[in-house]
Structures are given as structure tokens and as C-alpha cells.
């Protein structure tokens, strides 16, 4: 069984003062159908570039992206169409990821139309209604524009839009970090449900360790364009090796006051140690 495989990806951009800035320095990852992989890394670690390359929106300098045995950046015709159908994305900001000039019906039905899954308008409408129901929205939402909905509802519309074409792999680029905490859980649970119901493979990009822990089987930690840590979620978080992973875990809130106090002490200690090591 093969899914989406990224091998040894390198990408650099022209830097401000001449020369080039290497954003990705040989990154590899793979997602099989039905598997959920977490990708964490601080801002500027290359997460977005990695996703853009993996989705074929940008050409890497070297390395390859394969889907179902074909090289994504050179795929044409049926191979490309298969990739464009079976790999979908849900973006971070649901206020920017839905075309404001399209109704929900057009947004959710677009994939059905362009991939000729449901060419008939009436059938497409029935399909859209069913998809909306599946993500917990009323069917009459389809006649409205995205501006009529809240952030959480918009993210559900975005998920329905992605799921319309029955994808195998769903890339979620921080899908809940722009949402209220109370809504985050709903969207996460929706993704988890879809995963088990549809056998969806998910690449879940996040900052929030709690969410990754809850949702993902395995996790990759990206820092400065390299994968610095990877493995089953519990192994990585149970015994973090890299500084960034440790810092991230120390920053995550815990529901136990005693534990939180201990954490604060630990962080203070780390800060002092860091200060002491400076010349």
C-alpha cells in the first residue's frame, strides 16, 4: 500500500542580501492511507514550504514527491488528475480559504464538477446536502456565502469541500489554530471520525502537542529545514530528544496545578541555564 511519499526534498529561495536561503534540507516523510502523521515545528522551520512542495504547488530544487508510484512534479493526464483528486488540503484560516464569491453549494460541489463525479446539477446538489450533513451543517446552508458562517462552520465547509472528491490523503495545515478553543475540539473530532469512517490518511500540521497526541499515530519534528525527530507519537513525546520538542512540551498547558508549578520551575531553570551558558 503506497500513499504520499516525500523523499529527500530540498528547497531554497533567493535571500534578501543575495545568495539563497535553504528552507528544506533533505526532508523525507510518508503518509499511508488510513494513517495520521503529525508534523510539528516552529515558525520558519519549513512546514509551509514542505506542504506546498508535497502538494505540487511548488517545484523543489531536488528530491521527489511520489503518489501511488508516480512522480507528482512530472505527472500529467490521468496520473495528475488522480493526484489532484485523491490528495486534498484544509487550510489554517477558514476566512481566507473559501472563495467569498461562491456559494457553499458551489464551493462544496466544485470538486464533484471538475472531476466529473456528478455532472448533473441536481445530483450534485443532493451530494452537497449529504456532505454538509456529514460535517454537521444544515443542508440549507448551501445557498449562502461563506461570510454568513462562523470560523468553525467555515472550517466544516472547507472539510466538506475537501471530502467531496473522496480523497485518500488530507493535508491539514494547522486547521484549528485560528479557531476558538471551544470549536477546536469539534473540528478535531470531525477529522478523527472522517479518518476512521473513510480510511483517510492525514498529514496534520500543528503547534498544539495535545491535539497531535490525540489524533496522530506518528509524529515528525521539523527544525531549520530538517527532520530532527520522528517516530510513534508516544515514543517521541515520552522521551523527547530535541530541544525544540522539549521546549514545545514544556510550553503546553497542563490541567494539574501541581504539575504546572513544577513545569514553571523547570522552565525557569532552563532559562537560567541558557543565560549562564552565554559568554
Amino acid at each position: 500500500m503506497t500513499g504520499l511519499a516525500v523523499t529527500d526534498l530540498c528547497k531554497s529561495y533567493p535571500a534578501a542580501g543575495g545568495g539563497r536561503r535553504e528552507v528544506l534540507k533533505g526532508v523525507s516523510l510518508r503518509i499511508d492511507k488510513g494513517e495520521c502523521v503529525g508534523l510539528i515545528g516552529e515558525s520558519g522551520s519549513g512546514k509551509s514550504t514542505l506542504i506546498r512542495c508535497a502538494l505540487g504547488l511548488e517545484k523543489p530544487d531536488s528530491g521527489r514527491v511520489d503518489y501511488e508510484g508516480s512522480f507528482v512534479h512530472e505527472a500529467t493526464g490521468p496520473d495528475l488528475l488522480l493526484f489532484r483528486r485523491e490528495v486534498q488540503i484544509v487550510f489554517q484560516d477558514p476566512f481566507a480559504s473559501l472563495n467569498p464569491r461562491m456559494t457553499v453549494e458551489e464551493l462544496v460541489g466544485e470538486g464533484l464538477l471538475v472531476h466529473r463525479i456528478e455532472p448533473s446539477r441536481a445530483r450534485r446538489r443532493a451530494c452537497v446536502a449529504e456532505l454538509l450533513g456529514r460535517v454537521g451543517l444544515e443542508a440549507d446552508a448551501m445557498h449562502r456565502y461563506p461570510r454568513a458562517f462562523s470560523g468553525g462552520q467555515r472550517q466544516r465547509i472547507a472539510i466538506a469541500r475537501a471530502l467531496a472528491v473522496s480523497p485518500r490523503i488530507l493535508v491539514c495545515d494547522e486547521p484549528v489554530s485560528a479557531l476558538d478553543v471551544s470549536v477546536q475540539a469539534q473540528v478535531i473530532n470531525l477529522l478523527a471520525d472522517m479518518r476512521s469512517a473513510l480510511g483517510l490518511g492525514i498529514l496534520f500540521v500543528a503547534h498544539d502537542i495535545g491535539v497531535v497526541r490525540y489524533l496522530c499515530d506518528s509524529v515528525l519534528v521539523l527544525a531549520e529545514g530538517r527532520v530532527v525527530e520522528e517516530g510513534p507519537t508516544e515514543t517521541v513525546f515520552g522521551d523527547p530528544q530535541h530541544d525544540y520538542t522539549r521546549a514545545l512540551m514544556a510550553a503546553a498547558p497542563v490541567p494539574d496545578p501541581a504539575e504546572a508549578k513544577a513545569r514553571r520551575a523547570l522552565r525557569r531553570q532552563q532559562r537560567e541555564a541558557a543565560r549562564g551558558s552565554e559568554p
Binding site: 505540487g56 493526484f83 489532484r84 481566507a96 480559504s97 472563495n99 466544485e110 471538475v114 472528491v165
Partner: peptide
Amino acid sequence: VAPYVQGAQVMGVSRFR
């Protein structure tokens, strides 16, 4: 470069559309 345009590209819509 708006996310909804990139999303449409990921979905494989034609250049015309």
C-alpha cells in the same frame, strides 16, 4: 496566492475555471 486559489489548484480545476 490567496489560500482559496491555491486550494482550487490542489483540487485540480482547469486554468480557465
